[in-house]
């Protein structure tokens, strides 16, 4: 393999991973509590707060319904205010965070809703308070599903990050678009595609493996 090629592939792979993992981590910081809130404040939840639930639900739906590319463009002034410029990997992270947090909130919500209501009722009968139910029942009982959700979320974010290549984001997507589309160097584009596919596979498999590892329901 030519060294120039390697010099192109390695930094852009790193950049993609960096954008994806940083924004996934940030999005989980916001999305996990948001998902928990959506479950807890549901009308059948452990602390029903219908108004708050409706507001949060609507917010999540609004953000989820804006296509990522458009969101990235729409946020460009916010982005430059935060990171100083509206292009490049760090700018993409801001948009990825905004797009991924509500997505993750919904993933977390659906994982937590899989927890048997009977188990929650049992813990209430034992005098568990809301915080204890969240920390000792909901999250641990849903951990297998949460891990699968994390794998799906990360691969989705990776896909978004590649898309941002077309509007000046960095990483593998940018290389694929610049070479494959603007310069018509198809081979380069295919290399990037293969790398992207490989990364998705790795995240997916690792996620599923971890999920199986921690799940004590299957024996």
């Amino acid at each position: 393999m030519k060294p120039e090629l390697l010099q192109l592939i390695l930094p852009s792979t790193w950049e993609s991973l960096y954008m994806t993992l940083i924004s996934a981590a940030l999005a989980y910081i916001a999305g996990l509590p948001l998902g928990i809130l959506l479950v807890v404040t549901d009308k059948n939840g452990i602390r029903p707060l219908p108004t708050l639930n409706a507001v949060l639900g609507t917010l999540v739906n609004l953000l989820r319904s804006v296509p990522f590319l458009i969101l990235f463009i729409a946020l460009r002034y916010v982005t430059s205010a935060i990171v100083g410029k509206a292009y490049g990997a760090r700018a993409v992270i801001v948009a990825l965070f905004v797009a991924a947090a509500p997505f993750i909130a919904r993933m977390v919500e659906s994982s937590l809703k899989e927890v048997d209501p009977g188990v929650i009722e049992a813990s209430q009968s034992m005098g568990a308070n809301t915080m204890q139910i969240i920390c000792k029942v909901l999250l641990p009982e849903a951990r297998a599903s949460l891990l699968v959700g994390a794998a799906i979320s990360i691969t989705t974010i990776l896909g978004y990050s590649a898309m941002a290549g077309i509007v000046g984001g960095g990483g593998l997507g940018a290389v694929a678009i610049n070479y494959g589309y603007y310069r018509n160097e198809t081979a380069m584009m295919w290399i990037m595609i293969v790398i992207l596919v490989a990364i998705v596979q790795v995240f997916q498999e690792v996620g599923l493996y971890l999920s199986r590892m921690v799940d004590k329901r299957i024996r």
Binding site: D116, V119, A122, S125, M126, P140, V214
Partner: peptide, 15 residues
């Protein structure tokens, strides 16, 4: 006030 249930309601991820 202890309580037990028809479907046991044990925490599945705990021994």
């Amino acid at each position: 006030i202890g309580m037990i249930f028809q479907s046991f309601n044990l925490l599945m991820q705990r021994t």
